[in-house]
Design a protein around this nucleic acid. Structure first.
Lengths: 182, 182
DNA sequence: ACAGGCATGTAAATAGTTACATGATTCG
DNA sequence: CGAATCATGTAACTATTTACATGCCTGT
């Protein structure tokens, strides 16, 4: 069998403790891992089929009323596969930040407009921080501590980033002052 | 004209002050924006053609010896386009961190192996931090302060992240202790 | 002579998003 | 009844990476 995609492991991870439908997987991804690993229906549904064919999950029809619905559970092989993946060194780390890119080239703009980039970045990070706070309220105490550790990391990261934006904004405004007076 | 890709703006940004070849653009991207915005030859060369056709850059043949070479300069239209883009709110912010994803699902592993994920993440962040330090040494004082601000941000971010990994590692080890004694 | 870097480019594969189609159910 | 939500799925598109092909130049 060829290598599984990272999305495959997201699915394995989420069906490990409770059986879930594709729709439910999408919903839970959108409220948790999406901040560092997103997944769309276009990835989830085909991947569910592949994983079922490979015997790593099994689906069963559990309609809600007359609405057809397939929920998937992990198999012993699937658990094995998930653990084997977890034991490998993480490889992918990517960040694509249009704000940082604009800031990088901000010399092409007058200073006040460069500062506006930082302000916009700060506002965005604070908004995400608020989303994460809301998520945190929703979750009760779980016996699995890891999702909360990661969420906490997201909160700290967004705070750090927003603060950094403010500090850099102050620094730019200071140096603008220097230019005028020095 | 259809919307330009973000890669197009990376190119516009880098040819703004000095004329550069596709090869040089790739090199400078790899030593700067790659940490938050990467670009490959497969994107750069076709994009250079498109930008030249659109009149946002102009290429001229400047061979080094018998080695053919085309360097591109920005046009007035190109500068205008770049500035217009810089003035728009940054949209894309994406992070794909396989380490965080693994940590999120780490309950499937014995605690010592979960801790290993954090250690591996920390080591990776420290390694990137060292790369950025090296980059910082290489650059002298520029009159454009923004690349250095962004680089400095990268240094702080990798430090913060590495520290967070250590703190979370300590926390996991503590709670393992609690379970035994409590 | 040969390795490594300079230089341009393309083909194929992979990844991922968006938009759409379909249809049932629930709630106001 | 109509809107929202549950539910599954696909097609088309866009983005991006990887690998390869070509060939010149420089230094050892």
């Amino acid at each position: 069998m060829e290598q599984l995609s990272a999305t495959a492991y997201v699915i394995l991870g989420f069906v490990r403790n409770e059986p879930r439908s594709g729709y439910e997987i999408k919903a839970v991804v959108d409220n948790s891992t999406r901040f560092f690993w997103a997944a769309s229906y276009g990835q989830i549904y085909p991947e569910l089929k592949r994983l079922a064919e490979a015997g790593l999950i099994v689906g069963s029809d559990v309609p809600t009323g007359g609405r057809r619905r397939t929920v998937y559970e992990i198999t012993a092989d699937g658990e094995e596969e998930l653990r084997a993946w977890l034991r490998q060194e993480p490889e992918t780390f990517e960040m694509r930040d249009e704000g940082l890119l604009k800031l990088f080239f901000a010399d092409a703009l007058p200073r006040e407009e460069a500062v506006a980039i930082l302000r916009s970045m700060r506002d965005k990070r604070r908004a995400v921080n608020a989303q994460l706070q809301a998520l945190k309220q929703m979750k009760g105490e779980l016996d699995d501590p890891f999702p909360m550790i990661v969420l906490q990391g997201g909160l700290e990261f967004t705070e750090w980033f927003a603060d950094w934006c403010e500090r850099m904004e102050a620094r730019l405004l200071d140096s603008a002052l220097d230019e005028r007076s020095g």
